[in-house]
Every structure is written in structure tokens, then in C-alpha cells.
């Protein structure tokens, strides 16, 4: 099948890519646009390391054909990282040691961003539900939960 052009808004700017049918958003981000903050842990929807926001909702980019985001808004970790310093969620992850190998961190941060955008003051259970699809194999879940709660406090005082 022939390639086609897909246009969507990525991190605040319109982008245009030419892709074969069923090319995933993950492949477009990592291979075509070289935005590698979005990770690639399983490419089968099992680990959450490729999570990005589509219209503000967390989505597994490895399962999503890029044609499905045509005309929509996509935000990756690059999109929330300031030119200088850190986003409050990133700062909370850094300060609370919610990072070990770092491979799950981009997905975790995007999931928590989506959660805090719609629910600025989540309970611990709500944070746990939000990250339920994200695997951390260094088993740092406790510090990730602490970081999420810390991030919620920081965002409310900003």
C-alpha cells in the first residue's frame, strides 16, 4: 500500500510525516522525528514506557497507528520539558529519587501529567490506578507514588 501524509500537532507545532499504513505513532516519534524520550520497551502494549498524551489523555504510542492522530494534539516528554530547569513533575521525580534505570520514567511522568491535569489532588489509590499500566522493573513504585504526590503539591502552589 502506498505511503500517505499525516498531519498532527506535536508539542505545540504542526508536523507532517509521510508514512506507510499502520506505522505506529511510536515509530514516527522515535525513527522519523528522532524524538527518543518516548521509549520502546515491548512494542506490544505491555509496559507503558511509550506513553504520550493524545488530546491530553495517556495513550500507548506503540499500539496507535499515526493516522489515528491526524489533526489531533500529541504531547511527548520533550513537549513538557522547559528549555531551562524542569517541569514540576520532573523536579518531583528527581527530588524523590523516583528514577533508577530511567527507562520507565518518561512514560510514568506522562501518565502522572495526564492524571494531575484532570485531578489536581489525587489520592494515593488514584495515582496507583493511573500508573497501573506502567511497569517499573527496578521496583521503585513507592518513590514514584511519593513523587506524584509531591508533584501535586508543587503544581498547586505554583
Amino acid at each position: 500500500m502506498a505511503s500517505r501524509i499525516v498531519t498532527f500537532n506535536l508539542n505545540g507545532r504542526d508536523v507532517e510525516v509521510m508514512v506507510k499504513p499502520l506505522t505506529t505513532l511510536q515509530t514516527v516519534l522515535r525513527e522519523h522525528l528522532r524524538l527518543t524520550a518516548t521509549k520502546s520497551g515491548c512494542r506490544q502494549g505491555g509496559c507503558g514506557s511509550c506513553t504520550v498524551l493524545v488530546n491530553g489523555e495517556p495513550v500507548l504510542s506503540c499500539l496507535l497507528p499515526v493516522e489515528d492522530v491526524a489533526g489531533q494534539t500529541v504531547v511527548t516528554l520533550e513537549g513538557i520539558t522547559p528549555v531551562e530547569g524542569l517541569h514540576p513533575i520532573q523536579q518531583a521525580f528527581f527530588d524523590n529519587y523516583a528514577i533508577q534505570c530511567g527507562y520507565c520514567s518518561p512514560g510514568m511522568i506522562m501518565v502522572i501529567k495526564a492524571l494531575l491535569d484532570r485531578n489536581p489532588n489525587p489520592t494515593r489509590q488514584e495515582v496507583m490506578d493511573a500508573i497501573a499500566g506502567n511497569v517499573c522493573r527496578c521496583t521503585g513504585y513507592e518513590s514514584i507514588l511519593r513523587a506524584a504526590e509531591d508533584a501535586a503539591r508543587r503544581l498547586q502552589t505554583v
Binding site: 520502546s40 524542569l86 528527581f94 529519587y97 527507562y103 511522568i109
Partner: peptide
């Protein structure tokens, strides 16, 4: 503070597949 921490939280750490 972890030396590799800023790279991890910003996605700027370069893993082999990157």
C-alpha cells in the same frame, strides 16, 4: 542527587536503542 537523574526525567539520557 543522582548525576544521571536530570537525563532520566527529561528523556535526554541516551539508551542504545536511541
Amino acid at each position: 542527587p543522582r548525576r544521571d537523574g536530570i537525563g532520566h526525567v527529561t528523556g535526554k539520557t541516551v539508551y542504545v536503542d536511541d
